[in-house]
């Protein structure tokens, strides 16, 4: 398989600040790569370099086989970009926006009209097609923004935080749309702060922090790097944490960690779900009551925590409208 995106040692400096400090990135044709990292990690800067909006300070990058510095125009023919903010004109109607983008992609007018109807239909915007974007909800704007990127059927699509600020239902809608695009062979580079999103959509995940790639692999590979499954048990009576710990020592595959304040016990295990009834029997035999017991697989949150030493949301910007997100992603 050939590479749709190939970046080598890409650096971007803004004065003293190195937003990108040497990023290598390979994206196979037809695959989805999730670029994951906290705010300020360099995700958007990387997308801007690859989509010809910014010139790299050092390093090189090819998109669709074209150099982003010397063949910017060819790159622009190959890509579509949907940014963090729906960058379509709010005073134009949905249909007018699509026609505008079609004209700017230099498609024949008849083809633009047909394609616009197709996209409006596909993104369930037909009913709203003649309304100005001012009347659209956030989710509708994002869908239209994405539709505008797709009007020329680009083979490579950059999605820069496509669901930031959307409610959960709109987010699911976006995921469906993205998934169907990928099934039709579009290559997607997706940036996100939502670990769940990367987990759902991406074939491979590249984690960047402070302008450097700190991990690269499939979701499962990254998770197994962090470690295996764990049992998480909340004991009813905090005084009996130690009893519980000794009762489970035989089952655990490593050191058991206890937290007094939350009366929680965390036991690394191997053997998956068969361990669960065993653990319950052991606790029963020792006469230890518990409020909650769960088998926990590592999430990308754990991956992130162990790789960067901080959680993904830690550096979330203080913009008040986005505050709700913390809770959801936590």
């Amino acid at each position: 398989m050939s590479l749709a995106i190939e970046a080598r040692g890409v650096e971007k400096h803004f004065g003293e600040v190195k937003a990108l400090a040497g990023v290598d990135l390979d994206v196979q044709q037809g695959s989805v790569v999730g670029l994951l990292g906290p705010n300020g990690a360099g995700k958007t800067t990387m997308v801007k370099v690859l989509s010809t909006l910014l010139l790299p300070t050092a390093g090189s990058a090819k998109v669709g086989g074209f150099d982003v510095v010397t063949q910017a125009d060819e790159v622009r023919h190959t890509i579509g970009l949907t940014g963090q903010y729906a960058a379509v004109d709010e005073y134009l109607t949905g249909r007018e926006n699509l026609h505008l983008f079609g004209a700017l992609y230099h498609l024949p007018p008849a083809q633009v009209r047909a394609r616009a109807e197709e996209l409006l239909e596909q993104f369930t915007l037909t009913d709203a097609a003649d309304r100005t974007l001012k009347t659209y909800s956030g989710g509708m704007r994002r869908r239209l923004d994405l539709a505008a990127s797709l009007i020329a059927a680009p083979s490579i699509l950059f999605l820069d935080e496509p669901t930031t600020g959307l409610d959960p239902r709109s987010r699911l809608g976006m995921w469906e749309v993205i998934t169907s695009l990928v099934q039709q062979g579009t290559t997607v580079l997706l940036t996100t702060q939502y670990l769940e999103e990367a987990d759902q959509l991406a074939d491979r995940i590249v984690v960047i922090d402070k302008g450097l790639v700190i991990a690269n692999g499939t979701s499962d590979e990254l998770k197994s790097e962090v470690g295996g499954d764990r049992l998480e048990i909340v004991i009813s009576d905090g005084a009996r944490l130690n009893d519980a710990q000794s009762a489970l020592a035989r089952i655990a595959s490593g050191d058991i960690v206890t937290t007094d304040v939350s009366r929680t016990l965390l036991a690394p295990i191997s053997g998956g779900s068969t361990v669960l009834p065993e653990a319950i029997r052991a606790l029963d035999a020792a006469g230890v009551k518990f409020d909650d017991i769960a088998l926990r697989r590592p999430t990308l949150d754990d991956v992130f925590l162990s790789l960067t030493g901080h959680v993904a949301e830690e550096e979330a910007e203080p913009a008040p409208k986005r505050r709700g997100r913390k809770k959801r992603a936590a």
Partner: peptide
């Protein structure tokens, strides 16, 4: 939805001189 190949647009572009675009 049909994903057309990007060559479609390139061909389009060649059909007009730059000042036409």
């Amino acid at each position: 939805m049909s994903i057309a190949t990007p060559t479609m647009q390139s061909a389009n572009n060649a059909a007009r001189p730059w000042y036409g675009w």
